[in-house]
């Protein structure tokens, strides 16, 4: 599945809830719970993306030309959004990740979590995902 296809899939998944925030957040919380935990050996300070309030740990590795992300967060709603990001971006080539527009966040009505002033570390996480991809790409060239 391409990044756009996964984004579309998620958008449709959330459309089921309409304007009703509760179902949407319950779904997000479930997604957070189902996110496979990052390997504890990677849950270290150097993998930590600091938000002011919630913490996000992000680990990436290159496998067969594709970047694999694993992550965790200490806040469950943040973790749910982290799970969405991983579903969309993980297992793609560095170029695909670098060029991803991630418009689905706005479409599913979670934009507020990605405002730069939000203290949850998500904006920094996306930036880090792209930076890691760029680093892998540069190494290969």
């Amino acid at each position: 599945m391409t990044i756009e296809e996964t984004e579309k899939e998620i958008t449709e998944e959330f459309e089921l809830f309409g304007d009703e925030w509760e179902g949407k957040y319950e779904h997000l919380i479930d997604l957070g719970r189902s996110l496979p935990m990052i390997d504890v050996t990677y849950k270290t300070d150097d993998k930590l993306i600091k938000g002011c309030q919630s913490k996000v740990w992000l680990h990436s590795e290159m496998k067969d030309g594709k970047v694999i992300f694993t992550a965790d967060s200490d806040a469950i709603i943040t973790k749910g959004i982290v799970a969405l990001m991983i579903r969309v971006l993980s297992n793609h080539t560095p170029d695909e990740i670098i060029n991803a527009q991630l418009g689905f966040i706005d479409k599913v009505g979670l934009k507020e979590h990605l405002s730069p002033t939000r203290a949850n570390g998500l904006v920094s996480m996306i930036k880090q995902m792209k930076m890691d991809s760029l680093a892998y790409k540069t190494k290969n060239i």
Binding site: W21, E22, Y25, Q53, S54, D74, A75, I76, I77, T78, A119, N120
Partner: peptide, 13 residues
């Protein structure tokens, strides 16, 4: 067992 940010997010809603 709950993160303050999660509680605050639900309350905001």
């Amino acid at each position: 067992g709950l993160h303050p940010l999660d509680i605050g997010t639900i309350l905001d809603k």
